[in-house]
Amino acid sequence: MVGASPGGGTDILARMLAEKFAPDFKQSVVVENRPGASNTIAAELTARAAPDGTTLLLATNTGQAIAPHLLKLKFDPLKDLVPVGLVAVMPNVLVVPATAPYRNVKELLAAMVEKPGSFKYASSGIGSTQHIAGEAFTLITNTKAIHIPYKGSSQAHVDVISGEVSMMFDSTSSAMSQIRAGKFRPLAVTAEKRSQELPDVPTLAEQGVRGADVTTWYGMYVTAGTPKPVVDRLVAELNKVLKLPDVQARIRGLGGDVGALSVEQFAEMNRQEYERFGKLVKDANIKPEGQ
């Protein structure tokens, strides 16, 4: 189960894992995209599935740590889903259309100050890491930009490339293909350090904007109540796949780091992220659209 549309970062990783899982499980592994509601539609379907280990969720911190503070969910992501493992951590990157006139954050901010309220930023949905990064950026820089949510990054890319939307704080896993194709111009990495795949792109902090660091992590979950031997087998399989050289190379090529936590450490990380983003949503007064 994938809570985003085809072509985005979550979808790319899910299809890579499905291809690797199939031979070991001796059956096909189908990726089902259920975009919308900040990735929580797919999460709820997984939470309500039979607890037999045949329904897996590839989730991000959008659905697991942010959306629960913005949406009224019919399930508890911390109780109704069991962690299998951390797959990857990707920095987010501030991108603008390749045709945009600004070459760095300073020039972008100058334009935003000159024309307040005329800028739009895209995200893969309300409560996504792209949304949170955009809100943090405008809050810290005392600028204004209109949030335009989509059902997935790939849908948002069309309007960013055309210039219909001014910018996006996308994950590198989604944005790298457009950056390499010369359709996006990356202005800054929203992480503590530069991305190995984008060594010439400075961080926001390097350009004077501190406190807007947001990364996207991807983790695998299974329905709560799944027998422990089944969960253990899934954990072992995921760990095996993540050690494959071609899988590690693919994740690095997307600008990320391969998950290197035990399942217990990942569960604790999820809990801490849930609390951290809950505070951020409250402090920044971020609300669902229309409220």
Rank of each mutant, 00 (worst) to 15 (best):
V105G: 02
V93L: 03
S128K: 10
G253L: 01
D246K: 12
A50M: 12
L234A: 01
Q130S: 15
F169M: 14
P116Y: 13
V2F: 11
T99N: 07
A249P: 07
A22C: 00
G117H: 02
V29G: 04
S124E: 10
T141Y: 01
K144R: 07
K287V: 06
M167T: 02
S174A: 01
F137A: 04
I126G: 10
K79T: 07
V31R: 03
G9F: 00
E135R: 04
H131E: 01
P6N: 12
V209K: 13
K282W: 08
P186A: 02
V222N: 11
S262N: 08
T55S: 12
T10R: 11
L45G: 12
Q248A: 07
G134S: 04
T216N: 04
N33W: 00
T138F: 05
S166N: 09
K183S: 07
F184M: 10
P202R: 05
G9W: 03
P68R: 05
L57K: 09
L71D: 14
L187S: 12
I132N: 02
A284R: 03
Q155T: 06
F21I: 09
A236H: 10
L13M: 12
L70M: 13
G134A: 02
T226R: 03
P227G: 11
E264G: 10
G125N: 11
V160N: 05
M220I: 09
A175P: 01
H131D: 14
K183Q: 07
V96M: 08
L81N: 13
A4T: 10
F75S: 03
V158C: 03
L108T: 13
D24W: 14
P68C: 07
N39S: 14
Q27V: 08
L204V: 12
M90H: 14
L280K: 14
Y121G: 08
Q265S: 07
